[in-house]
Design a protein around this nucleic acid. Structure first.
Lengths: 212, 212
DNA sequence: GCCTGTGAAGCTATTCACAGCT
DNA sequence: AGCTGTGAATAGCTTCACAGGC
């Protein structure tokens, strides 16, 4: 149910918005519209989540959000580190220091002496020499890698040695990790290749209008 | 065969490397190792691609690359535009102006007057007022969106009006597009949520070592 | 009538396992 | 023996379609 998890995270964000705007209930087809999905899938996803709505009234947003919080292991706060303060690293720092109350970017790291001890969006940048120390002291369990492909594996080795269990990797290399570590690779160049392929291919002219 | 296309793009990059390093042939299990996949999948992918190797000698890299170039509609060059020159936009500009000979980032766009007419990695930044004009003049068919969620749809509307057929979207909103436009959404916050979920979940303790 | 929950069918992707070539 | 190509089995995801509650 990997796909379901991805969508639940999306629904969660959308529903938080709706809730803040004063909405208390929502139908599967309404959520599907704003999520760019289908009513059937939304219902199936909630079925997997284990939350049940009521016919005619749909889903109660507050209760649904509580259920999702539990599903996503909240309310415990997740501590993160990011390594590689290039443009991409800085973009992610600004993403993850904004408003996202339940996740805490502890620090960023870089090998460039010019960046060390600077702050980016309020997040301190340290030398990679201090990476192990910071991970241990703050019980960091998730790391983001935005270094070059040459340096990625050495950072991963530090992560693994210090028992990080999840890695979001933007370096275009296949990382070597023990099976207990979850790695999500995001390869921006490949995503663009994919868009180019499927947009030039005229095969898919019969699709629905939403998106995704 | 969406997954196959994604992997073929990856194989292609890896094989180019191997080829430059003087390697002429490769076995399915070798490619699988560097791609973080399995020998069976590699063979199945090449079967879908329509390229056939020879038992005992594996695949001939040069011929395979030619075959892939054709599959990915090369050698025609793809013209791109990027809208939103924030940190993420700049990161992508530097990605896509580097070495990637067959794709051409025509220009970047932003609404911030301070950025207009500057160059980023050799790529000019113009006002969004000129977006339509540049798309048409350069026959741009793919656009990258790295603006805020508030501005994303208006950019998409300009894209659609000017017949762009593929969009790589980093704004965390569901875009409204006609069915003929291929949209790939990349939501960085959601990817992190996913990593957090699957790394805290202890369910997946029996996986293989490669990655992805 | 309108909306949910869900079995069943359909589709896509991966894995197994083995025949066949060199 | 070593490696490919591939049918068949399996697993995972989505869609269909409809019974049942309000």
């Amino acid at each position: 149910m990997e796909k379901t998890v991805e969508r639940l995270a999306l629904y969660r964000r959308l529903l938080k918005n709706q809730y803040q705007n004063g909405k208390t209930h929502i139908f599967s087809h309404q959520l599907a519209d704003i999520a760019g999905s289908t009513a059937g899938i939304v219902r199936r996803d909630f079925m997997n989540l284990g939350y049940y709505g009521t016919p005619r009234h749909g889903y109660e947003i507050k209760a649904l959000l509580d259920c999702m919080d539990q599903f996503f292991h909240k309310p415990d706060i997740k501590n993160l580190v990011l390594v590689g303060v290039g443009n991409l690293g800085r973009a992610l720092i600004s993403y993850f220091t904004k408003d996202r109350s339940e996740l805490n970017l502890v620090a960023a790291f870089d090998k460039d002496p010019l960046k060390i001890n600077l702050k980016f969006n309020g997040c301190s940048c340290y030398s990679i020499d201090r990476l192990s120390e910071v991970i241990i002291e703050n019980h960091v369990t998730v790391g983001i890698i935005t270094v070059t492909m040459e340096s990625a594996q050495e950072i991963v080795d530090i992560f693994v040695k210090n028992k990080i269990s999840g890695i979001l990797n933007f370096a275009p290399v296949s990382l070597v990790t023990p099976p207990s570590v979850y790695v999500e690779n995001v390869d921006l160049a490949l995503m663009l290749e994919k868009v180019i392929y499927f947009s030039s291919t005229e095969i898919l002219k019969e699709k629905k209008s939403g998106s995704k």
